[in-house]
Design a protein around this nucleic acid. Structure first.
Length: 509
RNA sequence: GGUCCCUUCGUCUAGGGGUUAGGACGCAAGAUUUUCAUUCUUGAAACAGGGGUUCGAUUCCCCUAGGGACUGCCA
């Protein structure tokens, strides 16, 4: 298929680890690009020098890589529209800010952050909110209130300034959103956002974002709903630059909400409810560790799948999708409007679905390192045979140990309740006969062993169920686990008999 | 407070002017099983409220309520 001119970008700010809300935004952008044979661009929006976190950019790259969201153009990948990091595009933005200034769409403002903070406090004390807007700008220190001469003087003398967007008065701005339809704002309720600051020579998000989207020929802006209030500003900026004809289409994704309580999902929620909010484990510069999906044992396919179904669905009853299937089925029209509460239980279920779809040798390979760490030697064939017995009952590879450890180590203790119930009325002495019978067996496979045992139980007038449970207690330490004779086969003759003897020596007779 | 967005089972959602309002997670019960699980079957569980429009509204419109986002020289 010939590639289309669809171009979307994921534009995170490297201020910390990407959380799953951001990951989902990246995923939807990726799916949309793939669906239309377009380009998925990764742009790093590092215009806030004060919030820069050293390893955040690397974290973003690694996360996307782990999830298989291949970037077509970006800092690492390069591309015809680079650089893809805003700090490396620094020179570009002032030119565009000046363009706005010349056209009367922007003005210089000299109010200091302290002055504005003070103003905010004063307003707050009166239960009002200060906004630098159409009304208040008339009373503040800017090129609208100062004489041209004085403005020039201040700039020449190196006084720090910012360039603010001059929001027009009383204009109804209607913007179209692919998810929500048309959204209307009146400019009187909007404020004069800072576009550029002389102090560090950097643009703010709004300017850099619009300029870069334009320069990078972005066709669709798919981002979180938290940006919806900025939409009219962005539309006005396109208008001010005269770029309406090539303005991208916008789609604002519903937010991912906390599993319980109020508000959107945040970093803290994960640690509280015991589920990760980050794709990969993250250690902050202060040394605080936050858990990651990868380290918690999630498969990347499962994470993509569960995230895709948070706020989108294909309209069918299918729930398990590969990334390729998702890309094929994805449409913005089927994105929901309302926020989606994250459900940790269902997240586990998704992982379970992917786990049971893996074959035994894949699972054995994943489980092997865990065993090795515990000092257990085994081979892939045996492990594959074991893993297949229990894969239905686990959500994560890490849970295999709890389900299979009795294959590798004899029970260190026995479930007291089961002992009370099963280890009585001549059962111990019958166990000795069972062991003797086992010793004589040549064909150590489940079916003949079961036949031999059944026969012995019958001739001794024992209760089959009771003996089976007692034998299970002896071999696994409790009342759980897969088919008993399969366990016996895998344990082998010596180990089976050893465990019977161990129980006879340990448990009261 | 202001602006904007949203509202179907507890949760994720399908549906859409006339339906027994469907599925999934979770929960419960039963069946199967030598145990625990699995599996299978079944069950409980929803159209926020009030007005319109209409022969008919959960579906369309309005209001109310509730929830959410934004309200920085952050993104």
């Amino acid at each position: 298929m010939i590639s289309s001119n669809i171009r979307v970008r994921f534009a995170p700010s490297p201020t910390g680890p990407l959380h799953i809300g951001g990951v989902r935004t990246a995923l939807f952008n990726y799916l949309f690009a793939k669906k239309h044979n377009g380009k998925f661009i990764l742009r790093i929006e590092d215009t806030d020098s004060t919030r820069f976190v050293p390893c955040a950019e690397e974290y973003i790259n690694k996360s996307l890589q782990w999830l298989g969201l291949t970037v077509d153009e970006g800092v690492m990948e390069g591309g015809p529209f680079g650089p893809y990091k805003q700090s490396e595009r620094k020179e570009i933005y002032l030119k565009y800010a000046n363009m706005l200034l010349e056209r009367g769409w922007a003005y210089y403002a000299f109010d200091t952050p302290e002055e504005l903070d003070a103003l905010r406090s004063t307003y707050e004390a009166e239960n009002k909110t200060f906004a630098y807007d159409i009304f208040s700008r008339k009373n503040l220190v800017n090129s609208l209130t100062l004489s041209e001469e004085e403005t020039k003087q201040r700039i020449i003398s190196g006084k720090p300034y910012v360039i603010r967007f001059k929001m027009p008065e009383n204009v109804e701005v209607t913007a179209n959103d692919l998810v929500r339809g048309s959204v209307t704002f009146n400019t009187n309720t909007l404020d004069d956002k800072v576009l550029y600051k002389s102090a560090d020579g950097l643009p703010t998000y709004h300017l850099a974002n619009i300029v870069d989207d334009h320069l990078m020929e972005i066709t669709h802006v798919i981002r979180g709903e938290e940006w919806l209030p900025s939409l009219p500003l962005h539309v006005m900026l396109y208008k001010a630059f005269g770029w309406e004809n090539t303005m991208p289409k916008f789609a604002h994704l519903p937010l991912i909400l906390k599993p319980s309580g109020k508000g959107k999902l945040s970093k803290r929620d994960g640690d509280k409810d015991g589920f990760p909010v980050f794709p990969l484990e993250y250690t902050s510069p202060e040394g605080e560790v936050s858990s990651g999906y990868r380290e918690s044992g999630y498969f990347p396919e499962a994470v993509n799948n569960l995230l895709a179904l948070l706020g989108w669905n294909p309209g069918t009853e299918q729930e398990i999708f590969s990334l390729e299937e998702l890309a094929e089925l994805f449409t913005i029209e089927r994105v929901n409007k309302s926020g989606a509460r994250f459900d940790p239980e269902k997240a586990k279920w998704f992982n379970h679905q992917y786990l049971i779809r893996k074959n035994e040798s894949q699972l054995a390979e994943l489980y092997m390192p865990i065993l090795r760490e515990k000092g257990i030697q085994t081979n892939c064939e045996t492990l594959a045979a074991i893993v297949v017995l229990v894969k239905e009952r686990v959500n994560f590879v890490s849970e295999f140990w709890e389900q299979t450890k009795f294959f590798f180590v004899a029970p260190a203790e026995y479930d007291e309740k089961v002992v009370q119930k099963r280890w009585k009325d001549g059962v111990p002495s019958f166990m000795q006969e069972l062991a003797a019978m086992f010793r004589k067996q040549d064909n150590w496979t489940a079916t003949p062993l079961k036949e031999a045992a059944s026969e012995l139980i019958a001739t001794n007038n024992q209760n089959f169920g009771n003996i089976m449970n007692a034998l299970r207690l002896v071999l696994v330490g409790g009342s759980f686990g897969p088919d008993l004779f399969t366990i016996i086969e895998l344990l082998g003759k010596d180990e089976t008999i050893n465990r019977i003897n161990l129980a006879l020596n340990t448990l009261p007779s």
